[in-house]
Design a protein around this nucleic acid. Structure first.
Lengths: 347, 347
DNA sequence: GTGAAAGCGCTAACAC
DNA sequence: GTGTTAGCGCTTTCAC
C-alpha cells in the first residue's frame, strides 16, 4: 500500500535511477540524453502518469507567453462574442493571446474567474461586470491591491477603474426619436431581464425620450419581456392575444436583437405584418439581425470597437512600468435603418 | 538612471524597510500586520506598480483552482459556442472552470494555445483540431509526452487520442435520403470552405448518397460556396442568375446553417420561394435556424452533448491517477424537419 | 508584529 | 551523457 504522495520530477528520477537534471532534459527534449535513458524515463513517466507542473517550469523560464483574459456574461450571444473578437484581434496584433470565460450572469463565477486569471498570470482582464452597483466588489478591490490591470465594460459604482462602455440611454432615445419623426405615437418598449443594468438604462432612455411631453408616457408602455427567445416569443403572443387590434402599438423598441427576432417570429405567427402593422427596432446589431428575412432596424453597438478599445487600454496598462491614470471611454451607437420599420402616413 | 530590474517582493521589502515575510502577509491580507506598516507597504507597491507573480504564489499554496480549457475554431459561430456551453455546464458541475480560446482556423494559434494552457496548469483541454491529417501534430505529441489530458473534437490521422465527434457523412446522407423520399431528383450540395475537414466529409456523404445509382451523380452537383454569409449570398446570386429556371435544382443541401441562412436570403432577393420553388436543408441546427422566418430544416448536431461528453472524458482522465485507455465516441445527428423543405408532387 | 530561513517543483549552468 | 547545485519569487513556520 503506497502512501499518496506528490509525484515530482524527483520521484521519477529516483525510479529511473537517474538525476532530476536528466529527467528535466528529457522533458525539455534536449538532445543531450542517450536514447535508451530517454525512453526509460519516458516510460516511467507514462507508467506513473506523471504530469509536470507548469508553474514550476515557468518559474525559471520566466514566461509562458503573453495573454489577457475577458470575462463575458454569456457564451452564446453574438453581442459578447463579437466584443471578444474585437479584443482578440487587437490583442493578437500586440502578441497577446486572448482567453475567454463566461460568468453566466453569476457573481460567484465572476469572482472565481478573476482570481483564476490573476493567479495564472494572465496579464490582465476585461470584465463585463455582473455587479449591480452593490457592494459586492471586493474582488475588484483585490485586483486593485495587486495592481492587476483590468478594464470594465460597464460602470460599477464605488470603484474607480478603466471603463469602456456605450451610452444605452441615448441609444434607445435615438430609436424613439426616429420612430416619432416617422409619425409613430403608440410606441412601447419590451424590456430586458430585470437583473441587467442594460435593462434599466434602456428603460430610462425610453422614458427620457418622452420628457418633453410627460403625459405621453405611462408605465404600461414598459413591458417586461426578457431576452430569452422562447420566453420572448410567448410573452409577445400573450401580449397581443390579450388586447384588441385597435390598442396595438404601432412600434416596439426591443431590448436587444435576440428578443426582437423572437418578437418578429411571434408576430409572424400572429399574422401581424412587420413593418406594415407594427414597426420593430432592435438593439445591438448582431449578425443575424441583418440576415433575417425582414432585416431588422436596430441600434448598433460598436461591438468590435468596444473589445478593441478595452484591449488597447488594458495592454497599455499592462505594459506600463508605472501606474497609469484611469481611462473612461463612452462609445456612441448608431441607428441602422433596415426593413422592420416604416413611416406612418399621417391620418 | 535606474537599471531595469525585476520587481519582486524583496525589493518592496527593502524599500519599505521590512522583511519579505511582512510584505507577503500584507499581500495575503493577514491581520497580523500593524495598520501603519500595511499602509506603508501598500503605498510602496502602488508607487512601484508592483504586481506579484501568480505562479510563485501558487507554488507554495498548491493550487489556483481547477480549470479546463477548450480551443474552438471561431468565437462567433453559435455551433462552437454551444459546444463550449455544454462543456462548461459539465465542468462546473465537477467544480472546474472553463476557459475558452479560439484558433481562428490557424494552426500556429492552436499550437500556441495548447502550450499556453498546459504551461498555466489548466488541467486539460478540448480541441477542435485545425490540422488536416497533415503531419503538423507535434504539439499534440508534446501533450502526450507530458501526459497532458486532451480530447479532440475530430479525428486526427496519425495520433491515438480521445475523440468525440459526429458522423458527418451519415448526417448529409440523411438529408439526401429524406429529399429523395419526398420526390426530389435535382439535388445539389453547396459545399463549405475547402480547408475544413467537415467540408470534405459532407461532400463525401453527399456523394455516397448516390452510390446505388452512380449515374445520378455528377461533379456539378457540388458547388463550392463556403460558409461566410456575405460570400455565400453572392455565390448564390451568381449561381441562379447564370442559369435558366428549368435548370434550377429542386433542393439544396447546405454545408451549415449559417450558409443556409445566407442562401435563403439570396433566394428571397431573387424572388425564388422557399420551399415552394426550392427546398433548403441546413446543417448543425444553430438557434437562429429555428427562429428564421422560414424555419430551417436542418441536420442537428448535438452540440451541447458533444461539449458535455468531451468534458466528461477529459475530467475522467484528469482525475485518474493512472493513465486511462483512449476513448472514442461518435454521436449521432438528427434530421429536424421544419418549413424550408417540401414534398414534391410526382409529375 | 516582524524577521529569518526553509522550501515549493522545476531549470540551467557547470562539473565529472 | 549525466549528476550536482544554485536559484526562480513567493509563503510559511517559528523565533525574537
Amino acid at each position: 500500500m503506497k502512501r499518496i504522495q506528490k509525484l515530482t520530477i524527483k520521484e521519477i528520477a529516483k525510479r529511473a535511477g537517474v538525476s532530476k537534471g536528466t529527467v528535466s532534459a528529457v522533458l525539455n527534449e534536449k538532445d543531450t540524453v542517450k536514447q535508451a535513458t530517454r525512453e526509460n524515463v519516458l516510460r516511467i513517466m507514462k507508467d506513473l502518469n506523471y504530469r509536470p507542473k507548469g508553474f514550476a517550469r515557468i518559474m525559471k523560464r520566466g514566461d509562458a507567453g503573453k495573454s489577457i483574459g475577458i470575462i463575458i456574461k454569456e457564451l452564446n450571444y453574438p453581442f459578447y462574442t463579437t466584443i471578444a473578437e474585437g479584443a482578440k484581434t487587437y490583442a493578437n496584433s500586440k502578441g497577446y493571446s486572448l482567453i475567454i470565460a463566461s460568468s453566466d450572469y453569476n457573481l460567484e463565477s465572476e469572482k472565481k474567474l478573476t482570481s483564476l486569471f490573476s493567479a495564472k498570470d494572465v496579464r490582465g482582464v476585461i470584465i463585463t461586470p455582473v455587479v449591480e452597483g452593490h457592494s459586492e466588489i471586493e474582488h475588484l478591490f483585490k485586483l486593485k491591491m495587486l495592481n492587476y490591470p483590468f478594464v470594465l465594460l460597464a460602470d460599477v459604482k464605488g470603484i474607480a477603474a478603466n471603463v469602456v462602455e456605450i451610452d444605452n440611454e441615448r441609444a434607445v432615445g435615438k430609436a424613439v426619436e426616429y420612430l416619432k419623426r416617422n409619425g409613430h405615437r403608440k410606441i412601447i418598449h419590451f424590456a430586458g431581464p430585470p437583473e441587467s443594468a442594460h435593462t434599466r438604462e434602456r428603460i430610462q432612455g425610453f422614458r427620457n425620450a418622452f420628457s418633453e411631453n410627460p403625459l405621453a408616457f405611462n408605465e404600461e408602455m414598459i413591458v417586461p419581456v426578457g431576452s430569452n427567445s422562447k420566453v420572448s416569443y410567448e410573452k409577445t403572443m400573450k401580449y397581443f392575444k390579450s388586447r384588441k387590434r385597435k390598442d396595438y402599438p404601432t412600434a416596439i423598441v426591443c431590448f436587444n436583437d435576440l428578443q426582437a427576432l423572437a418578437v418578429m417570429t411571434a408576430l409572424r405567427d400572429l399574422d401581424i405584418k412587420v413593418p406594415k402593422d407594427i414597426s420593430i427596432v432592435g438593439n445591438d446589431d448582431i449578425h443575424y439581425a441583418e440576415i433575417y428575412s425582414v432585416p431588422l432596424t436596430t441600434i448598433r453597438s460598436p461591438q468590435r470597437e468596444i473589445g478593441q478599445k478595452a484591449a488597447e487600454i488594458l495592454i497599455r496598462h499592462i505594459e506600463s512600468s508605472n501606474s497609469l491614470p484611469i481611462e473612461r471611454i463612452v462609445l456612441d451607437t448608431e441607428l441602422i435603418i433596415r426593413k422592420s420599420t416604416r413611416k406612418l402616413s399621417i391620418k
